[in-house]
C-alpha cells in the first residue's frame, strides 16, 4: 500500500513551509518511516540535512531532492515509506506546485497572521480548487503559522480565513525561537529536549488534527 502523502504548499515564500515540513516529518517519523521530498528549488531542507550531517546530528527524516520531476520522486517515496512529506516551491514555481497538488492526499497551507499572507493564501486556495478537478480526494487545511496570541491581528485571522473555501485547523503553530534553534543545531524540535517541548507539542497537535479530520 502506498504511503500517505502530505504537502506543505503556499504560493508565497517565507511562510514557514520548510520548517513545518521538516518538523512534521520528524513528528510523523515516530509512528512510521518518512520520506521528506524537497521540491523547493531553494533547497532549504537539503541544506538542513547536510548541516545536520556535518554537525553530527542524527534522527532527521531522509530528505529526497525533488529535482526536475518531483512527482516521480514523490511516487517512488510513497512506495517505500509510510508517510511522504513534500515541501512545495514558493510562488516562482506555480507549475510544479500545481502538479504536486494533483498527486498528494493532503495539503497544509501555512499562513502567517498578516494581510499579505491572507491574500496570498487565497491564491493558494484557488490552486487547491483547480487541483481537485484532477484529484477529487485532495484534503486541504489552512494552518496559522508563527501566531502571536497577544496580537489582535493573529486573533482576527481565524475569522478572516473562515471566509475561504478551505477549513483552518483549530490548532496553530506559535512563533517560537525553538524552531530557529532547531535549524541552527541541525535537528528537529523533537530533539531539542525541554527547549523544544512546546513546539513539539504544537506539531503533534497538527498531526493529530490532520489525521482525525
Amino acid at each position: 500500500m502506498a504511503g500517505q502523502i502530505i504537502a506543505l504548499a503556499s504560493l508565497k515564500g517565507g511562510c514557514g513551509k520548510s520548517t513545518l515540513a521538516l518538523n512534521l516529518a520528524a513528528g510523523l517519523a515516530r509512528s512510521g518511516s518518512v520520506g521528506l521530498v524537497d521540491s523547493d528549488p531553494q533547497g532549504a531542507l537539503r541544506h538542513w540535512a547536510d548541516w545536520a550531517e556535518s554537525a553530527g546530528g542524527e534522527g532527521l527524516p531522509q530528505v529526497l531532492a525533488g529535482g526536475a520531476d518531483p512527482v516521480a520522486v514523490i511516487v517512488e517515496a510513497a512506495r517505500r515509506h509510510r508517510y511522504v512529506v513534500v515541501d512545495c516551491p514558493p510562488s516562482l514555481d506555480r507549475v510544479v506546485t500545481r502538479r504536486v497538488l494533483r498527486r498528494v492526499d493532503r495539503v497544509l497551507i501555512p499562513v502567517l497572521p498578516s494581510p499579505l499572507d491572507l491574500w496570498a493564501c487565497a491564491e493558494t486556495v484557488a490552486a487547491v480548487r483547480e487541483a481537485r478537478e484532477h484529484n477529487p480526494g485532495l484534503r486541504a487545511w489552512l494552518l496559522i503559522n508563527q501566531a502571536e496570541p497577544s496580537s489582535a491581528l493573529s486573533r482576527a485571522m481565524s475569522r478572516a480565513l473562515s471566509s475561504l473555501d478551505v477549513p483552518t485547523l483549530s490548532c496553530a503553530v506559535r512563533r517560537r525561537a525553538a524552531f530557529r534553534t532547531a535549524a541552527l543545531e541541525g535537528v528537529s524540535v523533537y530533539q531539542l529536549g525541554a527547549r523544544g517541548r512546546e513546539a513539539a507539542r504544537e506539531i503533534d497537535q497538527v498531526i493529530e488534527e490532520v489525521n482525525r479530520t
Binding site: P115, L118, W119, A122, E123, V125, A126, A152, L153, A156, M157, R159, A160, S162, S163, L164, D165
Partner: peptide
Amino acid sequence: MSKLEDKLTASIKPGQRKAP
C-alpha cells in the same frame, strides 16, 4: 465580529471568498 476581523475579511477579493 470586531472591526479588525471585518476589515481583514473585506480585504479578500470577493471571487476568492467561500460561496454561501
